[in-house]
């Protein structure tokens, strides 16, 4: 088995193969099996409790971080896994929401995660509500050092921003693309309006047109049960899934002119441009 991918920008990244809990009770003889970049991957913990992974006979470079397993398919990572300091910040509650399978390119999944314009339509009564549809101008910047993209000064009126929200709120957002198959968003914490909750989106590309999208919360919420928090997040992802699976084509066009953006798509435009400039082609139409 070899990875069905020739895109170095993806092969040299750290790609998730799911939460660490998947390896519970798994051994080399009976490993956790999953698909990554078109290849079957086996993961287990050896007797010392250390993570190990292979595809076919080939050993893979794997690490554990943020409660998730990360594989570098090429074995030669371009850089360290992205920083998520909120994961270990005191006062935050870490909730793993596990994954949801979506038949779409991972890049379209990430783009959807960065998009505020769809809130009143896809997430009506939760993250947005007609007629409050306007996306105010926000700032986009590329962090050349970390090789990440940021959208800042974003805000949107939300009728029910999270499980703990009891009224509508003008919510502040910050978005961060950490790699082609991953992003983090920060949004006003309803119970602590001075603080921002963090939500990580980790995409496992099974192939160019099918993924599992995992979601990790680092929340300020002492009230909601874990089941409620996970359920809320799955409601939101469940609303996005049929939209994403009806995007044609499933791969994301990077060249301008094929799909027409508008001003509120500044982050999406920056994401596509960033992918094109670094030569990412996996899950894309160049």
């Amino acid at each position: 088995m070899t990875f069905q991918c020739s895109d170095k920008t993806i092969l040299d990244d750290w790609l998730t193969v799911g939460p660490l809990t998947r390896t519970e009770g798994k051994t080399e003889a009976l490993p956790y099996r999953t698909q990554l970049l078109g290849a079957e991957v086996e993961v287990w913990k050896d007797v010392g409790g250390k993570l190990a992974a292979r595809t076919g006979q080939r050993s893979l470079l794997i690490q554990e971080c943020y409660g998730y397993m990360w594989i570098c398919p090429s074995g030669a990572p371009r850089k360290d896994l992205f920083a998520l300091p909120e994961y270990s910040q005191p006062g935050r509650r870490i909730v793993d929401c596990e994954g949801i399978g979506v038949a779409v390119s991972g890049l379209r999944m990430v783009e959807n995660f960065l998009d505020m314009g769809h809130f009143p339509y896809v997430h009506a009564h939760y993250l947005g509500e007609v007629p409050q549809t306007e996306v105010a101008t926000y700032d986009v910047s590329v962090d050349e050092t970390a090789d990440e993209i940021w959208a800042t000064n974003c805000r949107f009126f939300q009728p029910k921003t999270s499980k703990s929200a009891t009224t509508g709120l003008d919510v502040q957002y910050r978005y961060r693309v950490v790699q082609p198959m991953g992003a983090v968003l920060y949004k006003t914490a309803f119970p602590r309006p001075g603080e921002m909750d963090a939500i990580g989106l980790f995409v496992q590309p099974h192939d160019e047109e099918s993924i599992t999208a995992y979601c990790l919360l680092a929340y300020y919420d002492d009230v909601s049960t874990e089941t409620d928090l996970v359920g809320f997040q799955h409601t939101i992802f469940g609303q996005d899934k049929p939209i994403l699976e009806n995007q044609v084509p499933k791969k994301m066009p990077l060249r301008p002119g094929i799909e027409v953006p508008t001003r509120c798509d500044a982050m999406s435009v920056a994401f596509r441009r960033w992918l094109a400039s670094r030569g990412t082609t996996y899950g894309a139409i160049a």
């Binding site: 009143p120 339509y121 001003r263």
Partner: peptide, 18 residues
Amino acid sequence: YHGWEFDTRGGCTAIPAN
């Protein structure tokens, strides 16, 4: 997805986010 509206000539008549 984003509520863009198109009239009976196929022309775009509304982009609600802008």
